[in-house]
Simulated scan of single mutants.
Amino acid sequence: MNQKLTPSTILLLAVPPLLWAGNAIVGRLVREAVPPMTLNLLRWTIALLILLPLGRAALKPGSGVLANWRRYALLGLAGVGLYNSLQYLALQSSTPINVTLVASGMPVWMMLVGRLFFKVPVRPRQVAGAVLSILGVLVVLCRGDIHQLLSLRLVAGDLYMILATIAWSFYSWMLLQPKDTPALRADWAAFLATQVAYGLLWSALFTGVEWAVDAHAIAWSGTLAASLLFVAVGPAVLAYALWGAGIRRAGPGIGAFFVNLTPLFAALLSSAFLGELPHAYHGLAFALIVGGIVVSSRR
């Protein structure tokens, strides 16, 4: 694992937050049309159909897909089953601002999970970088006005997002565990398809519980179909492939700071859809978040 941030590594870690910002907007847009667990199941079913022709190495004998089933079951649970389901569930009751605020704690959770469960030491520069990065997120959320931040109220959806953030921290650290066969490690599509296949089993379980408890019928439309295609191709297949490659280069501790670009991208995308120009506080937030990345990644 190389801690140095090269331009290609920066690109690998910066594109996923942009796609995930779009995922949050779409998830909020279609929340009345499809239940959250069902949305996650449909999204990853489409993603697996895309990945299977690309990752045929996962189907070959000796790929390790069955031999290492515990590892891939855990990866699928944390990265596909829990994180995305909880995020869509959070958007049912919480505002995008609150969800983004809770998710801004990603660097802290990543450091805690790494220290407690993977024996990775926490260095002062990482703490300083986390403070800068979270300050940048807060600037976006309060739009440069501290009074807006003080008026925020937490609801049940925010708790779901905390759990989602913790799940993503475990997922990112588990990506580095050297337990994959060379065939899977060298083939991003096969590696991701394996995770998604196991993750779909968890997603199907969660969806079954959702429909058994209380779930409304799916309101099919062209908008919903286009939304499903987008979240399957962009925030799922492409973002996860790039994130995995970036994490293997820079490590989860550094990658966590790039996640905090998501609220900034979300604000800019929202501004674009609303026809509004970016404000000065967007520039300040970007400087603080990037400052956190630079400080945390220094040798």
Rank of each mutant, 00 (worst) to 15 (best):
F118T: 01
Q195T: 10
R143N: 09
S151T: 14
Y72Q: 01
L12E: 02
G251E: 02
A167V: 02
A24S: 12
V237F: 09
T9W: 04
L52E: 05
R70P: 05
M1F: 06
W211F: 09
P35Y: 09
V30S: 03
W168R: 09
V231W: 10
L201W: 05
G244H: 00
V99P: 05
A250G: 13
L89A: 15
L75I: 00
L112E: 03
S271P: 00
V294S: 07
A78F: 15
A193F: 05
G114V: 04
A128E: 14
R56E: 06
W202K: 15
P53W: 13
L229D: 09
S296T: 07
G251K: 05
I166N: 07
A217M: 09
Y198C: 02
Y240Q: 11
V131Y: 15
S296V: 10
L89Y: 11
P124A: 10
R71W: 11
W109L: 13
P178G: 13
A212C: 09
M174R: 11
S203V: 03
A236W: 07
D158T: 03
G144F: 06
L52H: 06
N84P: 00
S296M: 04
W211Y: 13
V15F: 08
L116R: 02
L228I: 15
N2T: 11
L149V: 08
V99I: 11
T165D: 06
V137Y: 06
T100W: 10
P278H: 06
R299L: 07
A130R: 06
P235A: 13
L74R: 01
N98M: 14
L152P: 09
W168E: 05
I46K: 01
A128K: 07
L41N: 01
I166A: 03
R185E: 13
R115M: 13
L138N: 04
C142N: 08
V15C: 10
Y281R: 14
A225L: 15
R249E: 07
L277Y: 05
Q92H: 12
V259S: 04
G275E: 01
P124E: 11
W211H: 09
E276C: 00
A217G: 05
V127E: 09
G76K: 01
Q148D: 12
L101T: 02
V233A: 15
A128N: 08
T181V: 12
R56C: 00
T38I: 06
M174Q: 09
H282C: 01
W44S: 06
L192Q: 00
A57M: 11
A190H: 04
S93L: 14
L11G: 12
V196Q: 01
G144H: 10
L5G: 03
D145I: 03
L138F: 15
